[in-house]
């Protein structure tokens, strides 16, 4: 094959994917970062302003207060997922991968089901269930004698974010569960037999043999959680709208970005500041991914069996 023909062949195979991906993914990303260094004037022209959008965002109180609020909430959102979603996922995966378990496939399928549904649908369904108007949640709690615990959790500043986070945990626990479950299945049975002969019970074998072997997967699950959490939007928007709860108590980066960029009842849309926030989100996510790639992943060995 001649060199030209070879290059032509490569072009035909690669061009469609590269063009679509570059145009609708990489270019917008770069353009957004680029935008964040400009200020859009009322006449439609743009003016280069250097880092001033960022200094405004981080130091001007009208901008920095919501930004830091959203950032703090987002960190909390992530923390709750790490401390609740991933441990539950781990436990469920560990139980599902036990040898000789009946109904394994049924449990797996059913527990994964919420993950399949739209966040909008899930958010709204929970909103109904938790609504004092319907009172299902209260009825349920009363059944266990815990009725006094019930409150308008979604409506109160102190509990809105926690409640929404737990709903998100409820929906997405299937993802860590399946990823960890897969990693556990890949561990050969003979290795567990060897541990049994060495005198370990199922629980000890899990802690001392399986857990160390799935550390790379736990690392992956953590970084996926991080990326998804700092990119989240749908659930909060669906449940609380763009204003994100009583007095912005459930505001996270995604909703802040949406509000700033599109504007709302309280303010006009602002392309430049929207871009600046998106760029900050990009930097945060990039930092997380880099920490994973260069610090966490480097330290961990992937074992092939």
């Amino acid at each position: 094959m001649s060199r030209t023909a070879y290059l032509l062949l490569l072009a035909v195979f690669l061009a469609p994917a590269v063009i679509i991906y570059s145009t609708f993914s990489i270019y917008p990303l770069l353009a957004t970062i680029f935008n964040s260094f400009y200020d859009r004037q009322d006449d439609g022209t743009s003016l280069f302003v250097g880092l001033s959008n960022f200094t405004t965002l981080l130091s001007d109180p009208t901008w920095s207060a919501p930004f830091w609020n959203a950032f703090r909430n987002n960190c909390l959102f992530f923390l709750i997922h790490m401390c609740v979603q991933n441990p539950i996922g781990l436990v469920l995966a560990a139980l599902l991968s036990l040898p000789r378990l009946n109904l394994r496939a049924t449990y797996r399928t059913l527990i994964f089901m919420p993950t399949m549904l739209s966040v909008v649908v899930i958010g709204f369904s929970w909103q109904l269930i938790l609504s004092p108007l319907w009172g299902v949640a209260k009825m349920f709690l009363s059944f266990f004698g815990l009725g006094f615990l019930f409150g308008p959790w979604l409506g109160e500043e102190s509990t809105a974010l926690l409640t929404i986070s737990l709903i998100s945990v409820w929906q997405f626990v299937g993802i860590p569960m399946i990823l960890i479950y897969t990693a556990l299945l890949a561990i050969p049975d003979e290795l567990i037999d060897a541990a049994t002969v060495d005198g370990l019970n199922q629980f000890q074998a899990f802690i001392w043999v399986k857990l160390p072997l799935i550390l790379p997967t736990l690392g992956l699950v953590s970084v996926l959680t991080f990326v998804n959490n700092f990119n989240a939007f749908d659930l909060i928007y669906a449940m609380k709208g763009a204003l994100a709860g009583p007095n912005f108590s459930a505001d996270i980066m995604g909703t802040l970005f949406y509000r700033v960029f599109f504007g709302n009842q309280l303010q006009l849309g602002d392309t430049s500041m929207g871009s600046a926030i998106a760029t900050m989100m990009f930097l945060i996510i990039l930092t997380g991914v880099m920490i994973y790639l260069f610090v966490i992943q480097r330290r961990m060995h992937r074992y092939s069996f």
Binding site: F24, I26, P28, L29, A31, T32, F233, F261, L286
Partner: peptide, 24 residues
């Protein structure tokens, strides 16, 4: 290099470019 370029999108959500996507 191209493979690496194409895999950026696995970790970086495309939503972050929304501003420019709308303009585009």
């Amino acid at each position: 290099l191209l493979a690496l370029y194409l895999s950026i999108g696995i970790m970086v959500p495309i939503r972050l470019g929304s501003v420019a996507i709308i303009q585009l």
